[in-house]
Design a protein around this nucleic acid. Structure first.
Lengths: 204, 204
DNA sequence: TTATCAATCAATCATTTGATTGAGAATTGC
DNA sequence: GCAATTCTCAATCAAATGATTGATTGATAA
């Protein structure tokens, strides 16, 4: 979001409105789910009239898609935060875990929004087209790390990178949930053991 | 559900009505999510009047709890299907995977209902009280298998059973989703490799 | 300054929604 | 068989819901 212009009475631009709408909708989804998402509640939370909301985001469907896009964009920004060049597979995996820990710490409740959108993606192709590529991208990041680790010897060479990546992202996603959050570090450690190269370890 | 009594014009009992309501609600949740669950649609699908629905299930909240309970009961029934006595850890793990494959094959779309209820559990304690113990029970099954496998030597002794169980159930759950279903066997195999005992394998 | 377009609003629409009411039908127990 | 109880229904309620309408305001370019 664009920095606020100091005390400007100027109307917000269309993009700013839509960003505010997306943010308000996310907050409400966290509280009430997609099930409880109401256009009037969003308008109220942004501080605009219901007709203004419809002016900027014409339908409720468009609104949910806007939320999905805002989420995708946040994750994209997060993915670019830390470069990984020069690290071996095992170190990159650890870095991915550290980054994930940051996400969980910064956005503890976003799992709620993401999860609701994943559910909707099953039923609504327009949401699937936003959410599934994002998930696939995340999973592919791990597959790449595992391939690198196999090549550099830090992971066992029996790994199926694609399957290992699914296992990893699934476990991380599950540990984002409130009732599993205290198991995050234990799961990180176990994943590292699961994929590390035993002969590498015995050499080290 | 109770076998149908042949051609009996008798009214269905309260329990039968509620079971039919739960089943109808499940079907609608699969199609439209909790977001699109409407009491009138359920009544119509069962073939009863809306007031009759309210007679048997007084509020929408009670209805969602009924769905959660019906799901829990199905899983409980499934869990008792195959005895595991006498198998070592690795074989029990394989049997768990085979059972899970059965569940996915028999109830491919139930992930949709379960997932919606998991999301609601975050926001609604009465649902959490039904769903979370069910999930914890499932996870604990795997932890038990891993502990057994460590003891009998079929799994590596560095495993943290609780963390390994979380990783396992998370991966299986994720592979129940339509877009991941084709990876189920690969993930099974990778999980087996992840936790197997290397010195056991080299002896075998 | 004026015309144009974008944005905003209050009021409103048509329908839906969870739930209720009261009468009648069906079942049960004595 | 009858009274009591359970169950079912059509009609209805009050409020909510996504969305629309038409008037007005704000911003900008000429």
């Amino acid at each position: 979001m664009r920095p606020e212009q100091a005390h400007s009475p100027k109307r917000e631009s269309g993009d700013e409105r839509r960003a505010a709408v997306a943010e308000a909708a996310r907050a409400i989804i966290i509280e009430k789910g997609l099930e409880g998402l109401r256009t009037r509640d969003i308008a109220e939370r942004v501080g605009i009239n219901i007709a203004t909301l419809h002016y900027h985001v014409p339908t409720k469907e468009a609104l949910v898609a806007l939320v999905a896009e805002s989420l995708r964009d946040d994750f994209k920004a997060q993915a670019l935060r830390h470069p990984k060049a020069g690290l071996n597979g095992a170190d990159q995996l650890r870095q991915e875990f550290n980054e994930f820990r940051e996400i969980v710490a910064e956005m503890p409740e976003l799992i709620g929004v993401l999860s609701e959108l994943v559910d909707r993606a099953r039923r609504d192709k327009s949401i699937a087209d936003i959410i599934l590529p994002m998930q696939a991208y995340w999973t592919e990041q791990f597959a790449t790390v595992y391939r690198l680790g196999i090549a550099d010897g830090s992971f066992r060479n029996t790994i199926d990178p694609a399957a290992a990546a699914v296992i990893t992202t699934a476990a991380l996603y599950d540990c984002w949930r409130p009732h599993r959050r205290d198991q995050l570090d234990g799961v990180f450690a176990e994943l590292e053991r699961a994929f590390s190269n035993p002969s590498h370890a015995s050499q080290g």
